[in-house]
Computed example of a mutant assay.
Amino acid sequence: MSGFGNNQAVALEDFIQAVQSQLDTAQTRMSLKAQNDKLPLTFAIRDIAMDLKAHVELADGEVRIRPAQPQDKDTTVLRIGFTAITKPMIEENAIQLAVDDDQDVSLDSLGDDLAPDERRRLEGIGVRTVAKLEEMRRRGLAGSVGRITRLPVDKLESVLSRATRPMVDDVSSESDNSGSSELRQRLRVRGRNLLRDGVPPRVAIGGREVGVVQASDDLILLEPGPDQFAGQMSLEYDPRARTEVWFDQSQLSSFGMAGADMTRPGNGGTQ
């Protein structure tokens, strides 16, 4: 609520969200105290009402409020009430999304892709991980997320593309005749994000596409041409977030590098 401290107008929903966030924190503290101190939870906050004396402004279709000073006149009194609701009421009216996995990538890991204020807006609607943001996009809710958080949809799409781009940790070769008389050499690529919505990324070596024989989230098996066992490999779901790696399996030797040395995120252009 830095805007209030500077006597600047803030969006009404930001004010309500800030109050709600602090109420959530207070509730969590009471619950933890009851659990850790072995004390009975003898009270709880059920309803809260507040009167806010403020100036109400309308800018670009958004209601904004600015706290009134003691000497101000012609101010508006906003009466805001928070009341308790039950879990069945929440489940009846809310869209069911998967619970966050503790091992999932936090939005904080996106670095400069999202400003701190933008991350706070997403966290304010329960989106704290990359997987949750991807789930909402997959369910066609990106537009709603954009409107609620005032983040452009194209920025959300761009952030997701970079956050979920293919990552390569190791490239090795293997032989496979699959019961036929012809011995084939294949490339085994290990990494992360190698499957999106059940579809592997587009893979090219030396600028030519390579067929994907098998794919999972952490492994893809490629069937390259005779001249595609060394060079630059590119993997992409979206040209804005391409991953490029250099490798050499031309001697069919076991060859692998750490992902930090091997993987270079592309920007959609030639690197």
Rank of each mutant, 00 (worst) to 15 (best):
L41E: 04
I90N: 09
D104L: 05
R119T: 05
P116C: 04
D101L: 13
P116W: 01
I125V: 14
A59K: 08
I65P: 00
V99M: 10
G124V: 05
E134I: 00
R119I: 11
I48S: 09
R128V: 09
T86C: 11
R66A: 06
T129F: 02
G81N: 14
A115E: 12
E135W: 05
S106W: 05
R79N: 14
Q71M: 12
G111C: 10
I48F: 10
D117I: 06
G124A: 15
D100M: 04
L107H: 03
T86A: 10
E118S: 12
G111W: 00
M50G: 10
I45V: 15
M89Q: 15
V56Q: 04
T42C: 08
R128E: 07
K53N: 15
D51S: 14
K87P: 10
G61Q: 02
P88A: 05
K87M: 14
K132Q: 15
K53I: 02
P116E: 02
P67S: 12
A54E: 03
E62A: 08
D102C: 01
L114D: 08
L133D: 12
L58F: 02
A44I: 11
M89K: 15
L110R: 06
P67E: 08
G81L: 10
M50N: 01
I85K: 08
Q103I: 06
F82Y: 14
A68T: 02
P88W: 01
L110W: 03
I80L: 15
R121A: 13
D101P: 13
V56W: 01
V127M: 07
Q96L: 14
A68V: 04
D104E: 09
Q71E: 15
R66Y: 02
D104I: 06
L107Q: 02
L41R: 09
V56L: 15
R64Q: 03
S109G: 09
P67G: 05
D102W: 00
K73T: 14
T42I: 10
L107Y: 09
G81V: 15
T83A: 14
D72K: 00
D51L: 06
K73N: 11
